[in-house]
């Protein structure tokens, strides 16, 4: 769903991976619903002032039981149900058969360790991955809490000292995607940035052989 003003190197709405795309559509749906509900409230408010003078009490059952309880319950249940299912697809993936990369954050850089046929390939502030295929990240931190976030590909995941968190990301097409540390981590937080380079098949094979492009 590409609306003109929504593109940008860090835009969550300019999705380039399945997780980000699903969340973006979810957002547009929620926006539509929220707009409709807000308008309903505003119209009811307006009417309260317009119908001034027309007497006649309205019942609490209608206002509170109907509009205050029944209507929101229906909306909220649908929303929670959908969000839980979406969350299952995005958050709780199987780990089999995919590329695994270790991402380690520190003040203020990122270290990415790729397991390749040749052994370990370590890069800094530049994550290499194959395009069109899910990649599993094992995210950790050595000093304070940071957070791994590539808005165009997927949601964020915190890098917490003492814990290892897992995030699955996928880029539909080869390209360069901007990433940033999303959790405040001290005076270098603004500049705690990195890039994700999604390779086509040839490029990925080259990277794995240790040939820098």
């Amino acid at each position: 769903m590409a609306v003109g003003g929504c593109s940008g190197p860090l835009s969550t709405l300019d999705a380039a991976g399945p997780a980000a795309a699903r969340v973006a559509s979810f957002w547009w749906a929620m926006l539509a619903g929220a707009t409709a509900l807000s308008l309903l409230v505003f119209v009811l408010l307006l009417l309260a002032f317009l119908r001034r003078g027309r007497e006649g009490r309205t019942s609490p059952t209608l206002w509170i039981g109907g509009l205050g309880v029944a209507m929101p319950i229906v909306v909220l249940l649908a929303l929670v149900g959908y969000a839980l299912m979406l969350g299952e697809r995005i958050i709780a993936p199987g780990l089999s058969g995919t590329v695994v990369i270790d991402a380690t954050a520190r003040q203020w850089s990122w270290e990415f360790s790729h397991r390749t046929g040749e052994g370990m390939q370590v890069t800094h502030n530049e994550l290499h991955m194959p395009a069109g295929q899910a990649v599993v990240l094992r995210i950790a931190a050595v000093d304070v809490i940071h957070s791994f976030w590539v808005p165009r590909l997927a949601g964020k995941m915190d890098a917490i000292p003492g814990h290892v968190n897992v995030l699955r990301i996928q880029a539909e097409r080869p390209g360069v995607y901007d990433g940033q540390c999303a959790e405040f981590c001290g005076s270098g937080h603004s500049g705690h940035l990195f890039r994700v380079i999604a390779h086509d098949e040839a490029g990925w094979a080259a990277f794995q052989r240790g040939e820098t492009r």
Binding site: T12, A20, R22, V23, F26, W27, M30, A34, L37, S38, V41, F42, L45, L76, L79, V80, A83, L84, L86, G87, I90, I91, S147, P151, A154, G155, K156, M157, A182, E183, F184
Partner: peptide, 30 residues
Amino acid sequence: LLGFFVIFVIGGMTGVMLAMVPFDLQAHDT
């Protein structure tokens, strides 16, 4: 009070959105 209604209802809507895990993973800390 009318100002309250307009602003608070919008804030409530975005609150429910943020309560949804998949959306929050994107919007959190922004």
